[in-house]
Computed example of a mutant assay.
Amino acid sequence: MGNHSTQTIFHLLGFSIAPELQALLFFIFISIYILTVSANITIIMLVRVDHRLHAPMYLFLGHLSFLEIWYTSTIVPKLLANLMQNKIISLSGCLAQIYFYFSLGSTEFFLLGVMAVDRYLAICNPLRYTTIMNGRVCLQATTACWSVAFVAVFFLVILISQLPFCGTDVNHFFCDIPPLLKLCCQDTQVVEKVVFLFACSIILSSFLVTIISYFFIVSTILKIPSNKGRRKAFSTCASHFTVVVILYGTVIFIYVRPSVASPLNINKVLGLFNTVVTPLLNPIIYCLRNKEVKEAVRKVLKKLAALARNGAIHPIM
């Protein structure tokens, strides 16, 4: 630490825009946040109540929706406060935000990797699928995803918490590691390398599992003689593949680079897309591209419509 005194209060600079635009962004972001939470809760409830969705793929989808609720809730409330000119955050609050943001994000990568393996087994080993992906295996896989991510990020946050900070202005709308390290009083090359290796180990390892799984999936699908059979097989993994492309594309660009010294304005835009938009896109993609989920939604809407009609008629009777 030397003669440096660590700052305990930071200011999130957020977006340098006119107050009128900040009010507009506040309305847009809070609307997206409400839709995100509602859509993911809907997915969770559908997985629980519809027996056709009691399969490993939808169990993992339920975990993914539960994760997305907390993932976006880690960032958006403070983002909304920032737009209302409440830009102050404590050091402990900053470290807590980093911890949950990276823990939940790492868990999502692990879950996507597990879901890719699940699709590989379902398409490439259909006869053994139900035996391999039983309830016990699914529980162990999801538990491992959550546990490994939260434990690994804990040690990363402990490392960052030991640094002395001299500056107060975090050039972001949330406490991300790259802009926070810019405020450090000492050389951060070692920490930057640790962060880079952490990002590589989490993101690229799960990405490699996903790529290998899809290599065998595509190879197997191309061997199916009928066009109808190939389309049906592709449809079972189209939603997952779309989510993988969106998530990995943004996060790899932000974090998997040789240095954390990156264009922060670009990172703000990509970070906004990753933390605000993507959690809403995931349930929409699964609803639009998945036949079973769409049928479950229709079934629930029909029941709600029937209940509404009965409720409207009952008082007259």
Rank of each mutant, 00 (worst) to 15 (best):
M1F: 10
G2H: 13
N3I: 07
N3L: 12
H4Y: 15
S5I: 15
S5R: 14
T6D: 13
T6K: 11
L12D: 01
F15L: 15
S16I: 10
P19D: 14
E20P: 06
Q22D: 03
F26M: 15
I30F: 10
S31G: 03
S31M: 08
Y33S: 02
Y33E: 04
T42Q: 11
T42V: 07
M45R: 13
L46I: 10
R48Y: 13
V49I: 11
D50A: 04
D50E: 14
R52T: 15
A55F: 14
G62S: 01
G62P: 01
L67P: 02
E68H: 12
E68F: 13
I69F: 07
I69N: 03
W70C: 13
W70N: 14
T72H: 14
S73T: 15
I75S: 06
K78Q: 03
L79N: 07
Q85S: 00
S90A: 02
S90Y: 01
G93K: 01
G93V: 02
L95E: 03
L95M: 03
A96E: 04
A96C: 07
I98D: 00
L104T: 09
F109W: 02
F110A: 06
L111T: 03
L111P: 03
L112W: 00
G113W: 04
V114K: 00
M115A: 05
M115Y: 04
R119Y: 07
Y120N: 02
L121M: 02
A122C: 05
N125M: 09
T131Y: 08
I132G: 00
N134P: 08
V137D: 05
T142N: 00
T143L: 11
C145D: 11
V151G: 05
I158N: 12
I160E: 06
N171F: 14
H172S: 13
P179F: 11
L181E: 09
L183M: 04
L183H: 03
C184A: 15
C185I: 10
T188I: 15
Q189N: 14
V194C: 07
V194H: 07
V194W: 13
A199I: 04
A199S: 15
S201N: 10
L204H: 03
L204E: 07
S205M: 05
S206M: 05
T210Q: 02
I211H: 00
F215W: 05
F215Y: 09
V218H: 12
V218M: 08
I224H: 01
N227D: 12
G229L: 00
K232T: 01
A238S: 00
S239I: 05
S239N: 09
F241C: 04
V245L: 08
V251A: 06
I252K: 05
F253V: 05
V256A: 06
P258D: 10
P258V: 08
V260R: 02
V260P: 14
S262F: 09
S262G: 07
N265W: 02
I266W: 04
N267K: 05
F273D: 03
N274G: 11
T275L: 11
L280I: 09
L280M: 10
L280A: 10
I284Q: 01
I285F: 12
C287D: 05
N290S: 15
K291P: 04
E292T: 06
E295F: 13
A296V: 12
V297N: 06
R298T: 12
L304Q: 12
R309P: 05
G311M: 08
A312K: 13
I313M: 11
H314Q: 08
P315D: 08
